[in-house]
Design a protein around this nucleic acid. Structure first.
Lengths: 251, 251
DNA sequence: AATCTGTATTTTGTCGACAATTTATCGATG
DNA sequence: CATCGATAAATTGTCGACAAAATACAGATT
Protein backbone atom coordinates (compact mmCIF):
# COMPACT_ATOMS: atom_id res chain seq x y z
CA UNK A 1 0.00 0.00 0.00
CA UNK A 2 2.52 2.54 1.08
CA UNK A 3 5.08 3.67 -1.39
CA UNK A 4 7.90 4.36 1.02
CA UNK A 5 8.81 1.40 3.15
CA UNK A 6 10.54 2.34 6.35
CA UNK A 7 13.89 0.66 6.49
CA UNK A 8 14.21 -1.78 9.29
CA UNK A 9 17.17 -1.17 11.56
CA UNK A 10 19.55 -3.87 12.65
CA UNK A 11 20.24 -3.31 16.31
CA UNK A 12 18.65 -0.12 17.59
CA UNK A 13 21.42 2.01 18.90
CA UNK A 14 19.94 5.36 17.97
CA UNK A 15 17.97 8.06 19.77
CA UNK A 16 20.23 9.97 22.15
CA UNK A 17 17.81 10.00 25.06
CA UNK A 18 14.10 10.15 25.80
CA UNK A 19 14.21 13.87 26.64
CA UNK A 20 10.65 13.45 27.85
CA UNK A 21 9.77 10.90 30.46
CA UNK A 22 7.13 9.02 28.57
CA UNK A 23 5.92 8.85 25.06
CA UNK A 24 2.37 8.89 23.77
CA UNK A 25 3.27 5.99 21.46
CA UNK A 26 1.02 7.05 18.66
CA UNK A 27 2.23 4.92 15.83
CA UNK A 28 0.22 3.39 13.11
CA UNK A 29 -1.52 6.40 11.64
CA UNK A 30 -0.06 8.53 8.90
CA UNK A 31 1.24 11.36 11.07
CA UNK A 32 4.69 10.79 12.54
CA UNK A 33 5.73 11.89 16.02
CA UNK A 34 8.66 14.15 16.83
CA UNK A 35 10.91 11.26 17.63
CA UNK A 36 10.01 9.39 14.47
CA UNK A 37 10.67 12.41 12.29
CA UNK A 38 13.97 12.97 14.06
CA UNK A 39 15.09 9.40 13.62
CA UNK A 40 14.01 9.20 10.00
CA UNK A 41 15.97 12.31 9.16
CA UNK A 42 19.09 11.44 11.10
CA UNK A 43 19.09 7.88 9.82
CA UNK A 44 18.86 9.19 6.30
CA UNK A 45 21.77 11.47 7.00
CA UNK A 46 23.84 8.70 8.57
CA UNK A 47 23.14 6.43 5.62
CA UNK A 48 24.18 9.14 3.17
CA UNK A 49 20.80 9.35 1.57
CA UNK A 50 20.71 13.04 2.44
CA UNK A 51 24.02 14.45 1.25
CA UNK A 52 25.62 17.40 3.06
CA UNK A 53 24.27 20.68 1.79
CA UNK A 54 20.83 19.32 0.99
CA UNK A 55 18.10 21.82 1.71
CA UNK A 56 15.52 20.61 4.17
CA UNK A 57 12.44 22.65 3.33
CA UNK A 58 9.91 22.78 6.11
CA UNK A 59 6.82 22.45 3.96
CA UNK A 60 8.37 19.63 1.99
CA UNK A 61 9.27 17.64 5.10
CA UNK A 62 5.88 18.35 6.63
CA UNK A 63 4.16 16.84 3.60
CA UNK A 64 6.49 13.85 3.54
CA UNK A 65 5.90 13.00 7.17
CA UNK A 66 2.26 14.04 7.23
CA UNK A 67 3.02 16.34 10.11
CA UNK A 68 2.53 20.01 10.77
CA UNK A 69 5.21 22.47 9.85
CA UNK A 70 5.66 23.46 13.49
CA UNK A 71 6.62 19.93 14.38
CA UNK A 72 9.15 19.69 11.57
CA UNK A 73 10.54 23.03 12.62
CA UNK A 74 11.02 21.74 16.12
CA UNK A 75 12.93 18.70 14.90
CA UNK A 76 15.09 20.84 12.66
CA UNK A 77 15.96 23.06 15.61
CA UNK A 78 17.04 20.00 17.53
CA UNK A 79 19.17 18.75 14.67
CA UNK A 80 20.70 22.20 14.41
CA UNK A 81 21.65 22.10 18.06
CA UNK A 82 23.41 18.82 17.41
CA UNK A 83 25.16 20.50 14.52
CA UNK A 84 23.94 17.90 12.05
CA UNK A 85 22.03 20.60 10.21
CA UNK A 86 22.70 24.30 9.98
CA UNK A 87 20.05 27.00 9.93
CA UNK A 88 20.48 30.02 7.71
CA UNK A 89 18.14 32.80 8.84
CA UNK A 90 15.25 33.33 6.46
CA UNK A 91 16.82 30.78 4.14
CA UNK A 92 16.04 27.50 5.77
CA UNK A 93 17.73 24.36 7.08
CA UNK A 94 20.49 22.44 5.31
CA UNK A 95 22.35 19.25 6.05
CA UNK A 96 25.60 20.37 7.64
CA UNK A 97 28.88 20.39 5.75
CA UNK A 98 31.56 20.13 8.42
CA UNK A 99 34.78 21.90 7.57
CA UNK A 100 38.14 20.18 7.69
CA UNK A 101 38.82 21.84 11.02
CA UNK A 102 35.55 20.65 12.49
CA UNK A 103 36.30 17.16 11.24
CA UNK A 104 39.63 17.17 13.01
CA UNK A 105 37.97 18.44 16.17
CA UNK A 106 35.47 15.60 16.10
CA UNK A 107 38.19 12.96 15.97
CA UNK A 108 40.22 14.83 18.55
CA UNK A 109 37.34 14.72 21.02
CA UNK A 110 36.34 11.19 20.13
CA UNK A 111 39.72 9.71 21.02
CA UNK A 112 39.67 10.37 24.76
CA UNK A 113 35.92 9.89 24.94
CA UNK A 114 36.08 6.44 23.41
CA UNK A 115 38.93 5.55 25.74
CA UNK A 116 36.74 6.55 28.66
CA UNK A 117 33.93 4.38 27.35
CA UNK A 118 36.24 1.41 26.94
CA UNK A 119 37.51 1.89 30.46
CA UNK A 120 33.99 1.82 31.83
CA UNK A 121 33.02 -1.25 29.84
CA UNK A 122 36.03 -3.20 31.05
CA UNK A 123 35.31 -2.19 34.62
CA UNK A 124 31.79 -3.57 34.34
CA UNK A 125 32.84 -7.10 33.42
CA UNK A 126 29.35 -7.87 32.17
CA UNK A 127 29.07 -10.81 29.77
CA UNK A 128 25.71 -9.49 28.55
CA UNK A 129 27.52 -6.43 27.22
CA UNK A 130 29.87 -8.56 25.19
CA UNK A 131 26.92 -10.50 23.83
CA UNK A 132 25.21 -7.31 22.65
CA UNK A 133 28.43 -6.13 21.05
CA UNK A 134 28.94 -9.44 19.29
CA UNK A 135 25.40 -9.30 17.96
CA UNK A 136 26.02 -5.84 16.60
CA UNK A 137 29.28 -6.88 14.99
CA UNK A 138 27.42 -9.78 13.40
CA UNK A 139 24.89 -7.33 11.98
CA UNK A 140 27.75 -5.30 10.59
CA UNK A 141 29.23 -8.35 8.92
CA UNK A 142 25.87 -9.27 7.47
CA UNK A 143 25.54 -5.82 5.98
CA UNK A 144 29.03 -6.13 4.58
CA UNK A 145 28.23 -9.50 3.10
CA UNK A 146 25.13 -8.00 1.51
CA UNK A 147 27.21 -5.17 0.08
CA UNK A 148 24.81 -2.71 1.71
CA UNK A 149 27.09 0.28 1.86
CA UNK A 150 24.53 2.48 3.56
CA UNK A 151 23.83 0.03 6.33
CA UNK A 152 27.55 -0.50 6.77
CA UNK A 153 28.21 3.18 7.37
CA UNK A 154 25.30 3.58 9.76
CA UNK A 155 26.07 0.42 11.70
CA UNK A 156 29.72 1.38 11.97
CA UNK A 157 28.74 4.61 13.66
CA UNK A 158 26.13 2.91 15.80
CA UNK A 159 28.69 0.46 17.13
CA UNK A 160 30.36 3.29 18.97
CA UNK A 161 27.05 4.68 20.20
CA UNK A 162 26.11 1.24 21.45
CA UNK A 163 29.43 0.98 23.22
CA UNK A 164 28.83 4.27 24.97
CA UNK A 165 25.29 3.25 25.93
CA UNK A 166 26.46 -0.06 27.33
CA UNK A 167 29.15 1.71 29.31
CA UNK A 168 26.34 3.05 31.47
CA UNK A 169 27.20 6.71 31.07
CA UNK A 170 24.19 8.52 29.66
CA UNK A 171 26.35 11.58 29.14
CA UNK A 172 28.95 9.71 27.13
CA UNK A 173 26.19 8.03 25.13
CA UNK A 174 24.62 11.34 24.28
CA UNK A 175 27.91 12.87 23.21
CA UNK A 176 28.83 9.80 21.18
CA UNK A 177 25.49 9.87 19.39
CA UNK A 178 26.19 13.39 18.27
CA UNK A 179 29.80 12.73 17.33
CA UNK A 180 28.88 9.60 15.41
CA UNK A 181 26.34 11.51 13.33
CA UNK A 182 28.90 14.17 12.55
CA UNK A 183 31.43 11.49 11.67
CA UNK A 184 29.04 10.05 9.10
CA UNK A 185 28.80 13.46 7.47
CA UNK A 186 32.55 13.84 7.55
CA UNK A 187 33.09 10.47 5.93
CA UNK A 188 30.69 11.41 3.18
CA UNK A 189 32.49 14.67 2.53
CA UNK A 190 36.09 13.60 2.78
CA UNK A 191 36.30 9.86 2.28
CA UNK A 192 39.00 9.13 -0.22
CA UNK A 193 37.34 6.90 -2.84
CA UNK A 194 40.62 5.07 -3.37
CA UNK A 195 40.26 2.99 -0.21
CA UNK A 196 36.65 1.90 -0.01
CA UNK A 197 36.83 -0.36 3.05
CA UNK A 198 39.96 0.30 5.02
CA UNK A 199 38.55 -0.57 8.41
CA UNK A 200 36.80 -3.89 8.46
CA UNK A 201 37.13 -6.31 11.31
CA UNK A 202 38.44 -3.72 13.77
CA UNK A 203 35.17 -3.61 15.63
CA UNK A 204 35.40 -7.34 16.05
CA UNK A 205 38.92 -7.07 17.44
CA UNK A 206 37.91 -4.36 19.89
CA UNK A 207 35.00 -6.48 21.02
CA UNK A 208 37.32 -9.41 21.58
CA UNK A 209 39.67 -7.32 23.70
CA UNK A 210 36.70 -6.18 25.76
CA UNK A 211 35.58 -9.77 26.15
CA UNK A 212 39.06 -10.62 27.41
CA UNK A 213 38.90 -7.74 29.85
CA UNK A 214 42.13 -6.41 28.40
CA UNK A 215 41.69 -2.67 28.83
CA UNK A 216 45.08 -1.66 27.48
CA UNK A 217 44.60 -3.66 24.31
CA UNK A 218 41.06 -2.40 23.84
CA UNK A 219 42.11 1.22 24.18
CA UNK A 220 45.05 0.69 21.85
CA UNK A 221 42.86 -0.99 19.25
CA UNK A 222 40.24 1.69 19.58
CA UNK A 223 42.76 4.50 19.20
CA UNK A 224 44.27 2.84 16.17
CA UNK A 225 40.81 2.27 14.76
CA UNK A 226 39.98 5.96 15.01
CA UNK A 227 43.30 6.88 13.51
CA UNK A 228 42.70 4.52 10.63
CA UNK A 229 39.32 6.06 9.92
CA UNK A 230 40.80 9.53 10.08
CA UNK A 231 43.73 8.49 7.94
CA UNK A 232 41.38 7.19 5.26
CA UNK A 233 39.98 10.68 4.89
CA UNK A 234 41.38 13.33 2.66
CA UNK A 235 41.63 16.20 5.06
CA UNK A 236 44.60 17.81 3.41
CA UNK A 237 42.47 20.49 1.80
CA UNK A 238 38.95 21.81 2.09
CA UNK A 239 35.95 20.93 0.02
CA UNK A 240 36.31 21.79 -3.68
CA UNK A 241 33.51 24.33 -4.12
CA UNK A 242 34.09 26.49 -1.09
CA UNK A 243 37.83 26.55 -1.47
CA UNK A 244 37.61 27.40 -5.16
CA UNK A 245 35.26 30.23 -4.36
CA UNK A 246 37.56 31.54 -1.69
CA UNK A 247 40.60 31.19 -3.88
CA UNK A 248 38.91 32.84 -6.83
CA UNK A 249 37.88 35.72 -4.68
CA UNK A 250 41.33 36.12 -3.20
CA UNK A 251 43.10 35.98 -6.54
CA UNK B 1 12.74 53.06 35.98
CA UNK B 2 13.00 49.35 35.64
CA UNK B 3 12.65 47.23 38.70
CA UNK B 4 14.93 44.41 37.64
CA UNK B 5 18.41 45.57 36.75
CA UNK B 6 20.24 43.18 34.50
CA UNK B 7 23.44 42.06 36.14
CA UNK B 8 26.51 43.08 34.25
CA UNK B 9 28.77 40.23 33.31
CA UNK B 10 32.47 40.24 33.93
CA UNK B 11 34.16 38.69 30.92
CA UNK B 12 31.66 37.31 28.48
CA UNK B 13 32.46 33.67 28.09
CA UNK B 14 28.93 32.44 27.59
CA UNK B 15 26.77 31.56 24.58
CA UNK B 16 27.86 28.23 23.15
CA UNK B 17 27.72 29.30 19.51
CA UNK B 18 25.80 31.59 17.19
CA UNK B 19 23.72 28.73 15.73
CA UNK B 20 22.50 31.18 13.12
CA UNK B 21 24.89 33.06 10.91
CA UNK B 22 23.79 36.56 11.71
CA UNK B 23 21.61 38.18 14.27
CA UNK B 24 18.89 40.80 13.79
CA UNK B 25 20.39 42.71 16.73
CA UNK B 26 17.10 44.05 17.95
CA UNK B 27 18.00 45.26 21.37
CA UNK B 28 16.67 48.26 23.17
CA UNK B 29 12.95 47.62 23.11
CA UNK B 30 11.15 45.64 25.76
CA UNK B 31 10.95 42.33 23.91
CA UNK B 32 14.00 40.11 24.30
CA UNK B 33 15.44 37.95 21.53
CA UNK B 34 15.95 34.20 21.73
CA UNK B 35 19.59 34.56 22.62
CA UNK B 36 18.90 37.09 25.32
CA UNK B 37 16.26 34.93 26.93
CA UNK B 38 18.59 31.95 26.75
CA UNK B 39 21.47 33.80 28.34
CA UNK B 40 19.37 35.39 31.05
CA UNK B 41 18.00 32.02 32.08
CA UNK B 42 21.27 30.13 31.95
CA UNK B 43 23.13 32.91 33.76
CA UNK B 44 20.51 32.81 36.49
CA UNK B 45 20.96 29.08 36.73
CA UNK B 46 24.75 29.33 36.84
CA UNK B 47 24.55 31.98 39.54
CA UNK B 48 22.24 29.83 41.61
CA UNK B 49 19.40 32.30 41.45
CA UNK B 50 17.24 29.59 39.92
CA UNK B 51 17.65 26.55 42.18
CA UNK B 52 17.38 23.03 40.75
CA UNK B 53 13.79 21.87 40.62
CA UNK B 54 12.37 25.35 40.02
CA UNK B 55 9.41 25.31 37.69
CA UNK B 56 9.86 27.44 34.60
CA UNK B 57 6.31 28.25 33.54
CA UNK B 58 5.98 29.34 29.96
CA UNK B 59 3.46 32.09 30.53
CA UNK B 60 5.41 33.42 33.47
CA UNK B 61 8.67 33.61 31.55
CA UNK B 62 6.90 35.11 28.55
CA UNK B 63 5.59 37.94 30.69
CA UNK B 64 8.95 38.47 32.38
CA UNK B 65 10.82 38.79 29.10
CA UNK B 66 8.05 40.50 27.21
CA UNK B 67 8.19 37.78 24.61
CA UNK B 68 5.68 35.40 23.12
CA UNK B 69 5.14 32.01 24.66
CA UNK B 70 6.35 30.29 21.51
CA UNK B 71 9.72 31.96 21.82
CA UNK B 72 10.08 30.98 25.45
CA UNK B 73 9.10 27.46 24.54
CA UNK B 74 11.83 27.37 21.93
CA UNK B 75 14.44 28.46 24.44
CA UNK B 76 13.25 25.90 26.97
CA UNK B 77 13.54 23.17 24.36
CA UNK B 78 17.12 24.23 23.75
CA UNK B 79 17.93 24.22 27.45
CA UNK B 80 16.34 20.78 27.71
CA UNK B 81 18.60 19.50 24.96
CA UNK B 82 21.56 20.75 26.97
CA UNK B 83 20.12 18.92 29.95
CA UNK B 84 20.09 22.08 32.06
CA UNK B 85 16.32 21.83 32.29
CA UNK B 86 14.08 18.79 32.04
CA UNK B 87 10.69 18.70 30.37
CA UNK B 88 7.88 16.69 31.91
CA UNK B 89 5.16 16.10 29.33
CA UNK B 90 2.06 18.17 30.01
CA UNK B 91 3.67 19.34 33.23
CA UNK B 92 6.16 21.90 32.11
CA UNK B 93 9.87 22.70 32.35
CA UNK B 94 11.98 22.52 35.49
CA UNK B 95 15.56 23.37 36.30
CA UNK B 96 17.40 20.06 36.17
CA UNK B 97 18.43 18.18 39.28
CA UNK B 98 21.36 16.01 38.22
CA UNK B 99 21.62 12.74 40.07
CA UNK B 100 24.79 11.64 41.81
CA UNK B 101 25.52 9.36 38.90
CA UNK B 102 25.10 12.14 36.37
CA UNK B 103 27.36 14.33 38.49
CA UNK B 104 30.08 11.71 38.42
CA UNK B 105 29.66 11.34 34.67
CA UNK B 106 30.12 15.04 34.17
CA UNK B 107 33.44 15.09 36.00
CA UNK B 108 34.49 11.89 34.30
CA UNK B 109 34.01 13.44 30.87
CA UNK B 110 35.44 16.77 31.89
CA UNK B 111 38.79 15.34 32.91
CA UNK B 112 39.99 14.19 29.50
CA UNK B 113 38.22 17.05 27.75
CA UNK B 114 39.99 19.66 29.83
CA UNK B 115 43.29 17.89 29.23
CA UNK B 116 42.65 18.13 25.52
CA UNK B 117 41.92 21.83 25.82
CA UNK B 118 45.11 22.41 27.79
CA UNK B 119 47.08 20.51 25.19
CA UNK B 120 45.71 22.73 22.43
CA UNK B 121 46.37 25.93 24.34
CA UNK B 122 49.98 25.01 25.01
CA UNK B 123 50.46 24.07 21.37
CA UNK B 124 49.28 27.52 20.31
CA UNK B 125 51.88 29.47 22.27
CA UNK B 126 49.81 32.64 21.93
CA UNK B 127 50.59 35.36 24.50
CA UNK B 128 47.20 36.96 23.78
CA UNK B 129 45.56 33.84 25.18
CA UNK B 130 47.47 34.12 28.42
CA UNK B 131 46.49 37.78 28.66
CA UNK B 132 42.80 36.92 28.30
CA UNK B 133 43.12 34.20 30.92
CA UNK B 134 44.89 36.53 33.33
CA UNK B 135 42.16 39.11 32.86
CA UNK B 136 39.55 36.52 33.67
CA UNK B 137 41.41 35.33 36.73
CA UNK B 138 41.60 38.94 37.85
CA UNK B 139 37.84 39.24 37.48
CA UNK B 140 37.48 36.13 39.59
CA UNK B 141 39.68 37.58 42.30
CA UNK B 142 37.71 40.80 42.22
CA UNK B 143 34.50 38.88 42.71
CA UNK B 144 36.09 36.98 45.55
CA UNK B 145 37.27 40.21 47.15
CA UNK B 146 33.74 41.58 46.84
CA UNK B 147 32.38 38.44 48.48
CA UNK B 148 30.04 38.02 45.49
CA UNK B 149 29.37 34.32 45.80
CA UNK B 150 27.15 34.21 42.75
CA UNK B 151 29.66 35.87 40.49
CA UNK B 152 32.37 33.61 41.88
CA UNK B 153 30.50 30.47 40.94
CA UNK B 154 29.62 31.69 37.48
CA UNK B 155 33.09 33.02 36.74
CA UNK B 156 34.66 29.80 37.96
CA UNK B 157 32.64 27.86 35.41
CA UNK B 158 33.26 30.42 32.71
CA UNK B 159 37.01 30.14 33.16
CA UNK B 160 36.86 26.65 31.75
CA UNK B 161 34.55 27.70 28.95
CA UNK B 162 36.91 30.52 28.10
CA UNK B 163 39.81 28.09 28.09
CA UNK B 164 37.98 25.85 25.65
CA UNK B 165 37.07 28.78 23.43
CA UNK B 166 40.63 30.06 23.37
CA UNK B 167 41.86 26.59 22.49
CA UNK B 168 40.30 27.13 19.09
CA UNK B 169 38.10 24.06 19.12
CA UNK B 170 34.51 25.11 18.63
CA UNK B 171 33.43 21.60 19.47
CA UNK B 172 35.31 21.51 22.76
CA UNK B 173 33.97 24.97 23.60
CA UNK B 174 30.41 23.87 22.98
CA UNK B 175 30.79 20.77 25.11
CA UNK B 176 32.51 22.68 27.88
CA UNK B 177 29.74 25.26 27.94
CA UNK B 178 27.23 22.51 28.54
CA UNK B 179 29.35 20.71 31.09
CA UNK B 180 30.10 23.92 32.98
CA UNK B 181 26.39 24.71 33.26
CA UNK B 182 25.72 21.24 34.59
CA UNK B 183 28.60 21.56 37.01
CA UNK B 184 27.06 24.71 38.46
CA UNK B 185 23.87 22.79 39.11
CA UNK B 186 25.82 19.95 40.65
CA UNK B 187 27.69 22.28 42.98
CA UNK B 188 24.43 23.79 44.09
CA UNK B 189 22.96 20.38 44.84
CA UNK B 190 25.89 18.63 46.45
CA UNK B 191 28.35 21.22 47.69
CA UNK B 192 29.26 20.42 51.26
CA UNK B 193 28.69 23.65 53.20
CA UNK B 194 31.59 22.82 55.48
CA UNK B 195 34.21 23.93 52.96
CA UNK B 196 32.94 27.14 51.37
CA UNK B 197 35.96 27.96 49.20
CA UNK B 198 38.19 24.96 48.80
CA UNK B 199 39.52 25.85 45.39
CA UNK B 200 40.80 29.35 45.19
CA UNK B 201 43.91 30.26 43.32
CA UNK B 202 44.00 27.07 41.28
CA UNK B 203 42.86 28.86 38.15
CA UNK B 204 45.72 31.24 38.63
CA UNK B 205 48.21 28.39 38.93
CA UNK B 206 46.87 26.70 35.82
CA UNK B 207 47.13 29.96 33.94
CA UNK B 208 50.72 30.33 35.05
CA UNK B 209 51.61 26.83 33.87
CA UNK B 210 50.02 27.67 30.51
CA UNK B 211 52.02 30.87 30.36
CA UNK B 212 55.17 28.86 30.97
CA UNK B 213 54.21 26.45 28.21
CA UNK B 214 54.51 23.59 30.66
CA UNK B 215 51.88 21.19 29.39
CA UNK B 216 52.55 18.42 31.87
CA UNK B 217 52.23 20.77 34.83
CA UNK B 218 49.10 22.40 33.40
CA UNK B 219 47.38 19.06 32.87
CA UNK B 220 48.40 17.87 36.31
CA UNK B 221 47.12 21.07 37.94
CA UNK B 222 43.91 20.91 35.94
CA UNK B 223 43.30 17.28 36.87
CA UNK B 224 43.94 18.01 40.52
CA UNK B 225 41.71 21.05 40.31
CA UNK B 226 38.82 18.98 39.00
CA UNK B 227 39.44 16.35 41.62
CA UNK B 228 39.41 19.00 44.32
CA UNK B 229 36.09 20.35 43.13
CA UNK B 230 34.65 16.87 42.98
CA UNK B 231 36.10 16.00 46.38
CA UNK B 232 34.43 19.07 47.90
CA UNK B 233 31.08 17.63 46.90
CA UNK B 234 29.10 15.24 48.99
CA UNK B 235 28.37 12.55 46.43
CA UNK B 236 28.29 9.72 48.92
CA UNK B 237 24.50 9.63 48.88
CA UNK B 238 21.72 11.07 46.79
CA UNK B 239 19.70 14.15 47.44
CA UNK B 240 17.70 14.06 50.65
CA UNK B 241 14.16 14.21 49.26
CA UNK B 242 14.44 11.68 46.50
CA UNK B 243 16.42 9.20 48.50
CA UNK B 244 14.08 9.48 51.46
CA UNK B 245 11.17 8.93 49.15
CA UNK B 246 12.82 5.89 47.62
CA UNK B 247 13.79 4.51 50.99
CA UNK B 248 10.36 5.11 52.45
CA UNK B 249 8.79 3.36 49.51
CA UNK B 250 11.14 0.43 49.72
CA UNK B 251 10.71 0.00 53.44
C1' DA C 1 21.84 40.29 -26.54
C1' DA C 2 22.88 40.97 -21.81
C1' DT C 3 21.85 43.30 -17.60
C1' DC C 4 19.23 45.64 -14.44
C1' DT C 5 14.89 46.59 -12.11
C1' DG C 6 10.35 45.73 -10.47
C1' DT C 7 6.85 42.38 -9.60
C1' DA C 8 5.20 37.69 -8.31
C1' DT C 9 5.87 33.49 -5.93
C1' DT C 10 7.68 30.70 -2.68
C1' DT C 11 9.50 29.97 1.92
C1' DT C 12 10.52 31.20 6.51
C1' DG C 13 9.41 33.66 10.97
C1' DT C 14 6.03 34.87 14.43
C1' DC C 15 1.99 34.98 16.79
C1' DG C 16 -2.54 34.25 18.80
C1' DA C 17 -6.32 30.92 19.37
C1' DC C 18 -8.17 26.47 20.43
C1' DA C 19 -7.93 21.71 22.40
C1' DA C 20 -6.19 18.50 25.85
C1' DT C 21 -4.21 17.46 30.08
C1' DT C 22 -3.02 18.41 34.66
C1' DT C 23 -3.64 20.76 39.06
C1' DA C 24 -6.38 23.10 42.45
C1' DT C 25 -10.70 23.93 44.80
C1' DC C 26 -14.86 22.76 46.80
C1' DG C 27 -18.62 19.99 48.17
C1' DA C 28 -20.47 15.52 49.40
C1' DT C 29 -20.22 11.35 51.95
C1' DG C 30 -18.76 7.51 55.02
C1' DC D 1 -13.17 14.81 60.65
C1' DA D 2 -10.94 12.82 56.91
C1' DT D 3 -11.33 11.07 52.35
C1' DC D 4 -13.07 10.69 47.94
C1' DG D 5 -15.15 12.61 43.78
C1' DA D 6 -16.59 16.22 40.65
C1' DT D 7 -16.23 20.68 38.90
C1' DA D 8 -13.28 24.81 37.88
C1' DA D 9 -8.97 26.98 36.91
C1' DA D 10 -4.58 27.07 35.04
C1' DT D 11 -1.01 25.34 32.08
C1' DT D 12 0.78 22.88 28.28
C1' DG D 13 0.43 20.98 23.43
C1' DT D 14 -0.81 21.78 18.69
C1' DC D 15 -2.16 24.03 14.79
C1' DG D 16 -3.42 27.23 11.17
C1' DA D 17 -3.14 32.06 9.66
C1' DC D 18 -0.71 36.21 8.77
C1' DA D 19 3.61 39.04 8.01
C1' DA D 20 8.33 39.43 6.36
C1' DA D 21 12.10 38.04 3.80
C1' DA D 22 14.32 35.79 0.00
C1' DT D 23 14.19 33.76 -4.44
C1' DA D 24 12.46 33.37 -9.17
C1' DC D 25 10.64 35.40 -12.97
C1' DA D 26 9.52 38.60 -16.45
C1' DG D 27 9.82 42.98 -18.76
C1' DA D 28 12.18 47.06 -19.94
C1' DT D 29 16.36 49.41 -21.08
C1' DT D 30 21.16 50.30 -22.79
Amino acid sequence: MEKKTVKQRGSRASSPAPLHDERPANEGEGGASDQEIYERIITSIMEHRLPPGTKLGEDKLAKIFGASRARVRQVLARLALERVVVLHPNRGAFVAEPTVEEAREVFEVRRPLEALVVHRIVAKKDPAIVARLRAHVAAEEAARAARDRRAIIRLSGEYHVLLAELSGSTLAARLMHELASLTCLIIFLYDAPSVPACRDQEHSEITQALADGDEAAAIRLMTEHLEHVEACLDLSRGRPEELDLEAALAG
